[in-house]
Amino acid sequence: MALWPFGVHDREHPSLGVILVVDDEESIRKISRLTLTKAGYEVIEAENGEKAIEVLNTGENPLTVDVILCDIRMPKINGVEAIQYFRTQYPSVPIIVQTGFPDLNLATSLMKQGIVDYLVKPVEKEKLLAAVSKAAEQRTTCNT
């Protein structure tokens, strides 16, 4: 699979996929954006669960978002609540959790709800890319 340079995702050179990044911290979103766009993905961002739900319910997004990368501890609607919503409303969109909580119980319960991975920060960029690419593949398989 070819890696497209930063930000290239027009019709001729489609991006590898669209990733919804949900995190309340600007610097964390920036890291994810850098890592993912450099690898050829397109990134949309939301700063809490409420915004994420709003974004996902906008226009074509339910169809174009390939993977959700979601933090847990956030204001308004937190990650756990948002994930419950995504799993019921958009069960075909794979979810990766990326959080600062090294919490085995939480990880297990979320895995049972169907998230594809539970990454504990700090996450190295290779690890994130591997998880995202695996999840994106799952999305493609689901759609066909």
Binding site: E25, I31, K38, D103, V120
Partner: peptide, 21 residues
């Protein structure tokens, strides 16, 4: 401890990320 880990892991994630980039 859970809260401390969380509060530390977030900036650590940032430091790791920016350093890698």
């Amino acid at each position: 401890t859970a809260g401390i880990a969380h509060e530390f892991n977030n900036p650590l994630h940032g430091i790791m990320g920016f350093s890698q980039h």
